[in-house]
Design a protein around this nucleic acid. Structure first.
Lengths: 118, 118, 118, 118
DNA sequence: GTGGTCTAGACCACA
DNA sequence: GTGGTCTAGACCACA
């Protein structure tokens, strides 16, 4: 479960997305503690400041919260997680379809490609 | 036909992708002249150097070529354009499916979402 | 260890060639860090952007690689360096001989001139 | 006897060199008329102004001269041509040897490469 | 008018 | 401190 960082996007955003995905896919479960900044920074081989920034962003979204001196936790609000999960999937899908239409594929083409992947 | 620049990605890459899409969707046709650096830079409201960089990258891919003092043209090689179009669509599709699977959707879920969009 | 820039050739190409020569002659050794963009630009008295462009070209050749926020390094692939060295020498030699033949020197003349330099 | 123009060098210089070579190799003979600006520009597929500039430079070197309303001629001074030929060959040879030494070839290596070409 | 190169200099992400 | 991106703007070669 490694990140292959994309040189063309800020690392902190890529980490943020990585953790968001871990939450909405229940890899990090509601209410459970997430790895410490130090652990994450050593796993991901990035500077702790960078991890810190990613986590602050997620805290603003309400997906994690901090217990002082104790660590950071995934929100207990399962509905919120589900809401973000749905938003995330809808965004992916919309963006995917728009991109395909823009380069000249029809909805039927798309259905065939997706169906063919089964 | 505007670009809404995404702050989290270099502008030159976004322009590059925009023009690549214009080519593989035949908005810019094989062998035809593309707008000059100055035109593009004034349409897109970016510096000519930035456009220049985007176009250099596309030239490296072989999708455009330069006629000295005359302008830049879409490649005449239609097969190459088709190849890039196919690659582009495959990448979008693969990435979309992997992303969806990673956050916990099944292939059936995906088919439903895509089918539902019809 | 200076470059006398030739007015009739883009500076970035001359810098590129200068660094390529430094690498294939092992002045810059495999795997070692090369001077930073800022250092080079101050040594060579050119704009950092110009140096940047030269180094991008070398990166495309695979002769150097970038470590994010850390610096640029000569490739560790010694075979690649040797390959470029051989190519460079072969090109020089071929071009030299063709040029000499074109202006009317025979192979024997050339051998005499080269031999005479000993 | 075509020129493959090198994009990285002014065309007028490449043409100038091409004609200089034609003169010192006696392809254009001493005292003989050289092709007109129009002919050259149509052969080389470049703008007449560009050819004009190349010829002016050669005229400054004394290698050609203009007969008003009649055309341009190679100098009648055969010694001058020989002098330029020798200079040209010496320059090529010096530059070649310096380049090879700089990337780490010995004089012996060079002799072997040149000898091997026989 | 067209592309290409270059400079001065700012600002960003990251260590 | 390190590389990367971007702008404003100048100047060049060539048609």
């Amino acid at each position: 479960m490694n990140i292959n960082f994309d040189n063309d996007k800020p690392i902190y955003l890529q980490i943020m997305e990585y953790i968001e995905k871990s939450i909405i896919s229940s890899k990090y479960e509601a209410g459970k503690k997430i790895p410490s900044v130090r652990e994450l920074s050593s796993i991901l081989k990035v500077n702790p400041n960078t991890v810190q920034k990613s986590l602050s962003e997620l805290e603003e979204l309400g997906l994690i919260y901090t217990e002082r001196t104790n660590g950071k936790y995934v929100t207990k609000d399962k509905d919120l997680i589900i809401k973000y999960k749905k938003m995330y999937a809808d965004n992916l899908t919309d963006k995917y379809i728009v991109d395909m239409l823009e380069i000249g594929y029809s909805k039927e083409d798309i259905n065939n490609m997706i169906g063919g992947m089964k």
